[in-house]
Design a protein around this nucleic acid. Structure first.
Lengths: 209, 209
DNA sequence: GAATAAGTTGACTGTGGTCTCAACTTGTTC
DNA sequence: GAACAAGTTGAGACCACAGTCAACTTATTC
């Protein structure tokens, strides 16, 4: 834990304004908003933005810092439910987050050099493992599906949300439902390719465009 | 049909060089390659590029002009097969095209202001309708799935290909297989959202980021 | 209420992209 | 092979963005 001395009052205020502006612009238009525009929207100069967030990713990290905790909370709720309902609940809630925030949608599916995973991330990872394991052992989730396969849901939802956000904001629910029926089919056909290994998934998530 | 007078010999050669360079760069790096770089790769000046292709989309249209015919050919082959096998064949071949060419992957899934549909496009559309109808009537494809739902496959594959191209180039096949099992499950669950209407899909395909 | 550290500013540099155009070169025509 | 049309060239205008910094302003400390 880097012990940082408290910010000066005006500095803290500007920092908050920047995060607020970034959060709103990211949500509306995705992560490609220019840093100058964020500064302008926040009502501070671009120098101040760079002073607080030297790197583009520092700002993104700050804006989405709480999201890992949200995922953990969703996962905990899911684990309090029946195995299959829990999995569905988890995926629906996470996809809702994607659908509600274009920046988050970019973050979970696209490049964006990530900060190193926090304890919260690791905890989320463990809970997700449990969600998948439970669903599989309950006999509902087909047993050749792994945690890594959930990335297909994230990626698929990401693109569907992008394409349909302005036209049929709920279209992703249909996409998700179709995928879920693939996950729990009573008549699974052999999958043509082994699942991604955990480190492959990490790399895929980091991968740049 | 706009009757255009034939190009001068050197002009035709430069045009071909430009299309060739664009095709290669697009395939390798997607549609965001800069026009100057394409001109440089082709060995002509940027002025010449703009002379031949005033608009960015003119070049994209020229590069991918033959793809609609390819889709028609794939669809025709698919219709010569058993209904379900035909559908699978069609989707696999189209996704292979996406996986093999980042530019095409961008084209089918992302924005990119499109040229008005050609006769070839309309024919492809009709054949796809038949493929879906046959598969549904054969009892294999669940009967609440429409042609428009195939867009979920395109979109999902697009993102999965982007994310995994450098890591596990065949990962999309697993994603596709899972979706296909959702399409033919013997135990379909009601879908939470009506299918996209044809004009909604057109708009979604046109939609910009 | 000085003195000082902390923070802000905005003009500026640099980069990389789109697109234009006047001067030039080349192919074609007769 | 002249003359004209067709096509090419590349420097440069223009823009949007990232990122820097010396001069300035403000909060805090004693």
């Amino acid at each position: 834990m880097p012990r940082t001395k408290p910010l000066r009052k005006d500095a803290q205020r500007n920092r908050d304004l920047l995060i607020k502006a970034a959060r709103e612009l990211y949500a509306a238009r995705g992560l490609d908003v220019s840093l100058d525009e964020i500064a302008r929207t926040a009502g501070v100069s671009s120098g101040t933005l760079y002073n607080h967030f030297p790197d583009r990713t520092d700002l993104i990290d700050a804006v989405f810092a709480d999201r890992a905790a949200t995922v953990v909370r969703i996962a905990e709720n899911a684990l309090a439910m029946e195995p299959w309902e829990g999995l569905v609940h988890f995926l629906e809630r996470v996809c809702e987050q994607q659908a509600a925030d274009r920046g988050y949608n970019d973050l979970v599916s696209r490049r964006v050099p990530q900060a190193p995973p926090t304890d919260e991330h690791l905890r989320g990872y463990e809970l997700m493992q449990q969600i998948v394991k439970r669903a599989r052992e309950s006999g509902t989730l087909r047993d050749d599906v792994t945690l890594e396969d959930l990335a297909f849901v994230t990626w698929g939802t990401a693109r569907t949300v992008e394409a349909t956000a302005g036209i049929r904001p709920q279209a992703w629910r249909r996409h998700l439902a179709l995928m879920l029926d693939g996950f729990r089919t009573p008549a699974p056909h052999p999958l043509p390719e082994p699942p991604l290994r955990p480190e492959e998934l990490v790399n895929a998530m980091r991968e740049c465009s």
